[in-house]
Structure formats: structure tokens, C-alpha cells
Simulated assay, not measured.
Amino acid sequence: MNEGEFTELLVASRSGDQVAWSSLVRLVYTDLQRLARRQRSHNAIPTTLGTTGLVHESYMRLAGTGKDHIENRKHFLNLASRIMRQVLCDYARLRLRDKRGGGVKHEELTDIEVEEQSEAQNLIWIDELLTKLEAENPTWARVVECRFFTGLTDDETAEALGLTLRTAQRNWHDARKWLADHLE
């Protein structure tokens, strides 16, 4: 679906057209599934949060923003990237909190649990770095959200952020360099 069709359905749904809203919900859900599958296949971050869980939680948060707040497909992709980052980081924090136990009898962790805990800690670390990057260069931070947390392509990232393809590519390169320099 192109930008014009998405916006047309969005406008119609705001005018009370329930058929348009139902169509838009199906499209948004399908887009979220595609983005979540892509994100899960490209990034080794919380393996215990499945694609379906990521899609449902992201969808619930997106639906909570209300259709009146989504401007167009570009805005939706940008918002979805931010929400997926929040969902993944919230989930990682919850996993780490649960693993700390709060007075519950501690048991030895399995190799899988150790890996999950390490993935969750790495995700929180990346989120903290991204927050620092956001203070220095908000556009680079948005590009990282789109590429890393949602798995958007160069073209989709450029579309979501309203950038030219070359600018999105350059920002992704520069943001990765910044992150690499700050990983120490």
C-alpha cells in the first residue's frame, strides 16, 4: 500500500467510516507483523519475547495513541519504530527485574537463561546509549530506531523520517560509528 492509499483510509476512518478503519487496522497489523519478523530475524534481542508478543504489545500501544494522532504512513512507520524500541526495552527491564528475584530463593541459571539475561542487559545498554545519542543528534537516534529496533530498510527509514535515501544512509553510517566509539 502506498502513502496516498494509507492516508485516504486514515482520513475516511477519522470521519467515522468503520470499513475504512477496519481496513486500516488490518494493514497496520500486517505492517507490524512484517516489521517485527524483520526485527527478530536481524537482531539478537530478547528471544523470549516472540514476534506475536512484540506485534500485539506494539499494536496495543499504537492503538492507544488513537487514529487522530497518526498523520500518514511515514508517521506510522516512525511511531512504530519508537514503540517497538519501548516494548523491547520495557520487556528487557522486566526480565532483568524478575531474574533478580526480590527475596525469592535463587537457583542456578541455565545456559539459555544466562543468554536471555545477557541479551536483555545488552538491549538496555543500547537503549541508554541511544538516549545519549538522542541528546547529541536526534536524527541519528531516529535512524537507529528505524534500522535496529524495527528492521526498516534504507528506503523505509528514509520514508519514515522524511529524508533522502542518501541522507538516511549517511546518518545510519555516522550513527553506527558514534555508537561503536561509545561502546567502550
Results as ranks from 00 to 15, higher is better:
1 M>H: 10
4 G>W: 06
5 E>C: 00
6 F>N: 03
6 F>G: 03
6 F>Y: 09
9 L>P: 01
9 L>I: 04
11 V>R: 12
12 A>V: 06
13 S>L: 03
17 D>F: 07
18 Q>V: 14
22 S>M: 09
23 S>H: 10
24 L>S: 02
28 V>L: 05
33 Q>P: 00
33 Q>Y: 10
34 R>I: 00
35 L>H: 01
35 L>C: 04
35 L>D: 00
36 A>M: 02
37 R>A: 05
37 R>C: 01
38 R>S: 04
38 R>F: 00
42 H>C: 01
44 A>K: 08
45 I>D: 08
45 I>E: 09
46 P>N: 12
47 T>E: 09
47 T>M: 07
51 T>W: 03
51 T>N: 03
51 T>C: 08
54 L>G: 02
55 V>T: 08
55 V>Y: 02
56 H>F: 01
56 H>E: 08
56 H>R: 14
56 H>G: 02
59 Y>V: 02
63 A>Y: 11
65 T>M: 13
65 T>S: 12
66 G>C: 05
67 K>C: 02
68 D>F: 10
69 H>L: 12
70 I>Q: 01
71 E>N: 11
77 L>M: 09
80 A>L: 04
80 A>G: 05
80 A>E: 00
81 S>Q: 04
81 S>D: 00
82 R>S: 10
82 R>Y: 08
83 I>C: 03
86 Q>N: 13
87 V>R: 02
87 V>D: 01
88 L>E: 01
93 R>Q: 13
93 R>C: 06
94 L>A: 14
95 R>G: 02
95 R>F: 12
97 R>V: 09
99 K>M: 15
100 R>Q: 11
101 G>W: 06
101 G>A: 11
105 K>Y: 08
105 K>M: 11
105 K>N: 06
105 K>I: 13
109 L>Y: 07
110 T>S: 15
113 E>Y: 05
114 V>S: 10
115 E>C: 03
116 E>F: 07
117 Q>F: 04
117 Q>G: 11
119 E>R: 10
124 I>Q: 12
124 I>T: 12
125 W>S: 13
125 W>K: 15
129 L>C: 07
130 L>Q: 07
131 T>Y: 09
131 T>C: 09
132 K>G: 11
133 L>E: 04
133 L>H: 04
134 E>Q: 14
134 E>L: 03
135 A>T: 09
135 A>N: 12
139 T>P: 05
140 W>P: 00
141 A>E: 05
142 R>C: 02
143 V>D: 00
144 V>W: 00
144 V>M: 11
145 E>R: 15
145 E>F: 01
150 T>R: 03
151 G>N: 01
151 G>D: 00
153 T>W: 06
154 D>I: 07
155 D>Y: 10
156 E>Q: 15
157 T>R: 07
157 T>H: 06
157 T>G: 04
158 A>L: 06
159 E>L: 13
160 A>W: 00
160 A>V: 06
161 L>V: 11
161 L>K: 08
162 G>M: 11
163 L>R: 10
164 T>Q: 12
166 R>W: 05
166 R>K: 14
168 A>H: 05
168 A>R: 06
172 W>N: 11
172 W>F: 13
173 H>Y: 12
173 H>C: 04
174 D>Q: 09
174 D>I: 01
174 D>H: 04
177 K>V: 14
178 W>F: 11
178 W>K: 01
180 A>N: 12
181 D>S: 15
181 D>M: 14
182 H>L: 07
182 H>C: 05
184 E>F: 13
